[in-house]
């Protein structure tokens, strides 16, 4: 009889019981509704065990990759650890490796991660200051030999965490980190599939991670990156991305400025509007949307109406906390 472990308590999974049945009969408070594998209310994760494929039907490839499954459809054949709320994972203390400016208001903060930290570029982590203040930042790079994580941090007006990170964090300092979280990352089902990446502000961080991940895994389909900001100061990594586009046939980079624009190299438009007018038919595309919540929501809908399948639209909306 398989055993299910949740928050250090172990439950017996009796014959013919689903994971949901076992948890409910043990009075575990877990959300559920249809019990048919449709509503996805009982979505749960196993950190140590690949769930039976039948329990992952209808989930996104990124959720499947992270061992998410529907508790109501899961008949385990082996012992499983379970995780209801991934926010319960512990913080670990890590080192600051580098703190450098990418533009007037944006730094690249490089920190180290422990050896047993497994992530996908584009996922995010939480950083916690000594006084308990927590902020989330996306991971902009693939795994490096020195275990470094690259984060882009924009200085917000009166931003308690971001101002402190800009001014005070130095190589050798320590900070607490928790994660990784999120479903916005690259998975390769078809390497010739066209990709559309739209980001505003530091929404470029997860997209940079996704881009690197796709290219290192040999993605051959076109990759279109649209990066937008209100003014030219908000665009960064421009030289690097322009150079990459020049030497990479299938990568196309379009920096966009939505406010006043004096630079001929940048498009004067909102990044999402420009992308959707350049690419009116998104059937078959995989799409990543990162940054301002209004942009993300609006683009999700428009991309879907332009023919993209909902299972192929990945979004990370950045809500701002000062």
């Amino acid at each position: 009889m398989p055993k299910l472990t949740l928050n250090s308590t172990t439950y017996d999974n009796n014959k013919d019981e689903t994971v949901l049945d076992t948890l409910l009969s043990n009075k575990v408070d877990i959300p559920y509704a249809c019990k048919q594998g449709l509503c996805q209310s009982c979505l749960i994760r196993s950190p140590n065990q690949t769930p039976p494929t039948g329990a992952q039907k209808g989930l996104k490839a990124t959720q499947v990759a992270r061992n998410f499954f529907l508790a109501c459809q899961c008949h385990p054949s082996e012992d499983m650890e379970l995780e209801l709320d991934t926010n319960e994972s512990p913080f670990v203390t890590v080192n600051v490796i580098k703190n450098q400016k990418l533009s007037q208001d944006i730094i690249e903060l490089v920190i180290s991660h422990p050896d047993n930290f497994h992530y996908q570029p584009g996922q995010f982590i939480n950083l916690r200051r000594a006084d308990g203040l927590v902020r989330s930042y996306s991971i902009a790079n693939c795994k490096r030999s020195n275990n470094s994580l690259e984060l882009h941090i924009q200085k917000l007006p009166n931003g308690k965490f971001s101002e402190w990170a800009h001014l005070s964090l130095k190589p050798g300092d320590t900070i607490d980190m928790q994660g990784p979280f999120g479903d916005c990352f690259y998975t390769q089902e078809k390497k010739e599939q066209p990709l559309l990446l739209i980001g505003t502000g530091t929404g470029l961080a997860p997209l940079a991670g996704i881009l690197e991940s796709a290219l290192t895994q040999g993605h051959t389909g076109p990759i279109h990156l649209y990066h937008g900001s209100r003014d030219a100061n908000g665009l960064y990594l421009v030289d690097k991305l322009t150079a990459l586009a020049k030497k990479t046939d299938n990568f196309h980079y379009t920096p966009c400025v939505s406010g006043e624009n004096t630079l001929p190299d940048f498009q004067t438009a909102r990044a999402n509007d420009k992308a959707l007018s350049d690419l009116p038919d998104l059937k078959g595309y995989k799409i990543y949307l990162c940054g301002h919540p209004d942009m993300v929501k609006d683009s999700q809908r428009k991309a879907y109406l332009a023919g993209a399948s909902l299972q192929q639209i990945f979004a990370d909306a950045f809500t701002v906390n000062v």
């Binding site: 509704a33 449709l38 879907y304």
Partner: peptide, 25 residues
């Protein structure tokens, strides 16, 4: 307007399953 697209899609699937005479609660 303003609904979460992904959770809405799951609801649409439940609805269609019902409309097709399939198993539903």
């Amino acid at each position: 307007d303003g609904v979460d697209m992904a959770s809405q899609a799951a609801k649409q699937k439940s609805f269609l399953t019902m409309a097709f005479g399939g198993p539903n609660n």
